[in-house]
């Protein structure tokens, strides 16, 4: 993107809490210089002005949960040179993917009171299940420093520096005492991708997996250790089924403990 024209940036929302795109507005110190480098072409949360595509860079927040959104993401992909998905909803289906584990009939009997006006799919799925994506930025929410790093790397045509190692590495870097070893807290850190800065252990609680599975996690070994320490199977299932419940390594392991 060396041309004189400012690259066009678009932000798209699907089923989500708005928090990941808010991370962009939360870059209070960098926001004005960012908008100096890109043309904000479509960002409904921030602007009424809409500039037509194609877009050089699209940031996509949220998961696909309705037939309408399944079509809309195809159009967004066609209009975008590069498509980056941000946050646990977009990369793994989000907390709303808990519906994916329910028997649909049972789920209907809980919630379906009257034949209503709402159309929804029976699964909440990540963007990559529908269209090719160019990068997945993890987190619930994403780390705004990683988001800025990713955007500036893409704008200058270099590889983003986003590590895929575990939260444990960040804990060691901070010098935080291991909450699992020292306090017996069940912690997702050993199987969760870094990015938050090992926040929860520094507040004396176990990691709960906001950033989803690290590269090649050994989830089975971790849950065996938890069970050995007395964690009951239903609590193992709950720990694995939160904001990245439908990410393959967490999903598979939770199903192994779900009787």
């Amino acid at each position: 993107m060396v041309s004189k024209r400012k690259p066009k940036l678009a932000v798209w929302k699907f089923a989500s809490c708005d928090g990941c795109q808010l991370s962009l507005l939360d870059c209070e110190d960098e926001l004005l210089s960012l908008v100096g480098r890109v043309e904000i072409a479509n960002f409904a949360e921030a602007s009424r002005a809409v500039i037509r595509g194609p877009y050089d860079l699209s940031l996509v927040e949220g998961s696909i949960t309705t037939p309408h959104d399944a079509e809309r993401i195809q159009r967004v992909r066609r209009d975008s040179k590069r498509l980056i998905v941000i946050g646990a909803c977009a990369t793994a289906g989000g907390i709303q993917a808990l519906r994916n584990f329910q028997d649909v009939k049972e789920f209907v009997s809980i919630v379906y009171a009257t034949p209503d006006y709402i159309a929804t799919l029976d699964k909440s799925t990540p963007i990559a299940a529908h269209v090719p994506v160019d990068f997945e930025l993890r987190g619930c929410p994403v780390n705004k420093k990683q988001l800025l790093e990713l955007i500036s790397a893409l704008l200058s045509g270099r590889k983003p520096n986003i590590p895929a190692y575990s939260v444990c590495v960040e804990c060691k870097q901070r010098g935080t005492v291991c909450v699992m070893v020292a306090r017996g807290e069940p912690c997702m850190g050993p199987v969760t991708q870094a990015g938050c800065g090992a926040l929860c252990p520094s507040y004396v609680r176990g990691c709960y997996g906001c950033f989803g599975p690290m590269e090649n996690p050994n989830v089975e070994s971790l849950t065996a250790e938890w069970r050995h320490r007395g964690v009951q199977a239903p609590d193992v299932v709950r720990a694995l089924r939160s904001f990245n419940a439908y990410a393959e390594p967490f999903r598979r392991e939770s199903e192994a403990h779900d009787q």
Binding site: A15, C17, D18, L22, G94
Partner: peptide
């Protein structure tokens, strides 16, 4: 805005998970 059914999947979760789960209704 697509419905996300928090009240349905809160059933069966432990009481101490509610603050973290319901926070995800709104990022603002």
């Amino acid at each position: 805005e697509p419905p996300r059914f928090f009240e349905a999947f809160l059933r069966g979760r432990r009481y101490d998970e509610a603050p973290d789960i319901t926070a995800r209704i709104c990022g603002i």
